[in-house]
Amino acid sequence: MLLEVQDLKKHFTVKRGLFDRGHLRAVDGVDLALAPGEACGLVGESGSGKSTVARLVLRLLTPTAGRILFDGDDIGGLEERDLAGLRERMQMVFQDPHSALNPRMTVFRSIAEPLVIHRRLGGLELRRQVEELLEIVGLSRQFMYRFPHELSGGQKQRVCIARAVALRPKLLVLDEPTSALDVSVQAQILEFLTDLRERLGLTYLFISHNLAVIRYVCDRVAVMYLGRIVEEGDTATVFEQPKHPYTQALLSSVPLPQAEQPDDAIILEGDIPSPIDVPPGCPFHTRCPQKIGPICETARPTLAPDATGRKIACHLYQEGTRPR
């Protein structure tokens, strides 16, 4: 495994009153493993903790508990000064390419920066490598001395991707990389990302709230709800036969761009609970249309694999709770 996350937790302390301190359980016991060359998607709604998982894996945040094994090293406890070496091997692409690029830097300087910092390159060699990177992301050389405001959203995202792959990392964490783009541009970037993964042998951790995007890019998907993974498996299987009631409702909520609309859409009642007051037991029991009884309110279901290797955290499918 290239990346292995074990019982990862991140709790934030939040002020609720003068003396009242609450704990926001952004990530609350996540296990995840990524094989080299794989594209794994993390989906969930706001507050599900998917972006926090990404930031923990990149060690932009320090975990409260749990282990992060990357390429054989335990990176969960690394100190700030030891992280520089890690950055060469994993990089990130953010949602809004406009705010991810320094408006005062030319495209050349933005892409060159990691090469200057980590490889101490300069002169002709630096120029040659930047040109090569521009070619990889499909931008012509004339973009080299342009500023971000002269580029379209899609072009800016390509620059961000060029900068992210400059050091030839093994893992690329993409946090909603196309959410700020129009669909026609999104299609270009998604197509390009799929192609790039093959060409450079990259591994993707792909975060998105857009399920159709995940379906296109990822081999495997993990569905998160309130800081936990509720279902995980092969993308096509999970999307065609979702088992967890939340996954079923989530998929059924997506309005489809087609003439025929399903008339059996599952519409959940109520809102997502606050991650500060996570319901006890199964966090989804407050909205679950298939709640089986008091066990859902008291016992937290574990993420258990079924016969096919898909993992589900739901009492409906757990042994000893109810035969299925």
Partner: peptide
């Protein structure tokens, strides 16, 4: 250009 939720699409054309 729209990715599909219920089909494996090989190529998206922007």
């Amino acid at each position: 250009a729209i990715p599909h939720l219920h089909a494996d699409v090989q190529h998206l054309s922007g």
